[in-house]
């Protein structure tokens, strides 16, 4: 097992043991993420290439790097870079590889991170490739579940956009490595693609599907809500039909198991009412924070730094 100095493109590149190594390292680094200072990454430069908007992924990588004493190079807006002149991603990656020690890439095309890894001379970390993968999100989700619930014998409901939501496919895959019981809750038109469901079942995951959110509320350990993403719908009328179909409000709280936690990769739009934020079930803001220790752990690994 060797995660040092390698690309992080897809959760499918990870074994369960490797995931556990990342999670354990994040536990060690969490005190630093909470405001500590370290210089273990001093002298290292992380390049952030975001071709699509991002708040949490971009800023938590920056925070992780800065708190560990490293530096950050930012592509900035596409308009301010050579991208606007028509430079290919492959060329940009080759160039930025010579300026930095690792690259975080978010790009609208599926497979962009895999291609970038072919051209890069430094590790590539996939920060989201279109509707494809977002492995660092999955790892922080697993970390949240480990810290706030339990990864063994987990009962989880994943709710909302299971067709276009990139985080969901990676998360379901990773959870299947832990033998989780996964209930997929979505409207008919946003069901998980058959291909992915077949892959999960082939891996031995216990997967069931329902359209009824109420059915699962009193039985799961984790309720994982997702945003129904407008930009993934080719047809705006299809979007308006399904938006808001799955929403958690204060009214649901009485029916929840006491120790059940609610997660959301954020940003949320309509899926979780603000009245839920102060309940004992809400964990989505902690989840966002956990992106920092997880990204600290990954950065130390790809940069080959012992912790």
């Amino acid at each position: 097992m060797n995660i040092d100095r390698r690309h992080i493109v897809s959760m499918k590149d990870f074994t369960r043991d490797e995931i556990d190594v990342v999670l354990e390292r994040a536990i060690k680094l969490e005190p630093l993420a909470r405001g500590g200072r370290s210089d273990i990454l001093a002298g290292n430069i992380l390049a952030l290439l975001f071709y699509e908007p991002s708040t949490r992924t971009r800023m938590s990588f920056e925070t992780a790097m800065l708190r560990l004493g490293g530096s950050v190079l930012n592509l900035g807006s596409k308009e301010a870079s050579s991208v606007v002149k028509g430079e290919t991603l492959a060329d940009t990656i080759r160039v930025i590889s010579t300026y930095s020690d690792a690259i975080v890439l978010r790009h609208p095309s599926e497979g962009s991170a895999r291609m970038a890894a072919e051209y890069a001379s430094v590790p590539i970390i996939n920060g989201g490739d279109g509707a494809g993968h977002h492995p660092t999100q999955t790892l922080l989700d697993l970390y949240t579940i480990k810290k706030e619930s339990h990864l063994e014998q987990l009962d989880i409901a994943i709710v909302g956009d299971l067709k276009y939501g990139r985080t969901v496919h990676s998360l379901a895959y990773a959870l299947s490595l832990y033998g989780a019981n996964i209930t997929l809750v979505s409207p008919q038109q946003l069901k998980i693609p058959d291909q992915i469901k077949e892959d999960l079942k082939a891996m031995g995951a216990r997967v069931s599907e329902t359209e009824n959110l109420d059915e699962v509320l009193d039985s799961v350990d984790v309720l994982y809500m997702t945003r129904i993403q407008k930009e993934r719908f080719p047809d705006p009328t299809e979007y308006s039909k399904v938006v808001g179909a799955y929403k958690i409000t204060e009214a649901h709280l009485d029916n929840l198991r006491e120790d059940m936690i609610i997660m959301h990769p954020l940003p949320r739009v309509y899926e979780i009412d603000a009245s839920v934020d102060d309940s004992a079930h809400a964990r989505y803001f902690e989840q966002s924070f956990y992106g920092v220790p997880i990204r600290m752990a990954l950065l130390t690994m790809v940069l080959g730094v012992e912790v």
Binding site: L89, P108, E110, G111, M115, E118
Partner: peptide
């Protein structure tokens, strides 16, 4: 067959 795949762009791949 995925129109949004990186292999269907102008990248040298």
């Amino acid at each position: 067959a995925n129109p949004n795949c990186i292999s269907n762009t102008n990248e040298p791949v």
